[in-house]
Computed example of a mutant assay.
Amino acid sequence: MDNSFHHFSELFAQLGLPADDRAIREFLAAHSPLAPDVMLADAPFWTPAQATLLREEILGDADWAEVVDQLNAALRLPG
């Protein structure tokens, strides 16, 4: 079992987004808060490829699930 810990920056890089601290903060501020009834992968700001990646990571790859959950929580906070 792979017990890797992934960082926000790695997830942003996987999503093809700028992954430095400033860019991550700006992304979160621009897209928060995400409505409670919207699933993370269904948010309107993802490309189809990003949405698919998020769905696959949360469902099929447990070592990425934690950081995807953290992204989900961060996007629920007021920007």
Rank of each mutant, 00 (worst) to 15 (best):
M1A: 12
D2V: 13
N3W: 10
S4R: 14
H6C: 00
H7V: 02
F8T: 00
S9F: 02
S9V: 00
E10W: 05
L11H: 03
F12P: 01
A13W: 04
L15M: 08
L17P: 05
P18F: 02
P18V: 05
P18Y: 06
D21W: 01
I24G: 05
I24A: 07
I24M: 10
I24W: 02
R25D: 14
A29H: 12
A29M: 12
A30K: 14
H31V: 02
S32K: 01
P33M: 08
L34V: 02
A35L: 10
P36W: 08
D37Q: 11
V38I: 15
V38K: 03
M39D: 06
M39C: 01
L40W: 04
A41M: 03
A41E: 14
A41S: 14
D42R: 10
D42A: 11
A43L: 01
P44G: 01
F45M: 12
F45K: 09
W46M: 03
W46C: 02
T47Q: 12
T47Y: 06
T47I: 08
P48W: 04
P48S: 05
L54E: 08
R55G: 03
R55F: 05
E56V: 15
E56I: 11
E57N: 10
E57T: 05
E57H: 12
L59V: 06
G60K: 12
D61G: 05
D61A: 15
D61L: 13
D61V: 14
D63Y: 12
W64P: 01
A65E: 15
V68Y: 03
D69F: 13
D69N: 11
Q70D: 14
L71E: 07
N72L: 04
N72H: 14
A73W: 00
A73I: 00
A73E: 14
A73T: 09
L75W: 09
L75Y: 07
L77A: 12
G79T: 07
G79L: 09
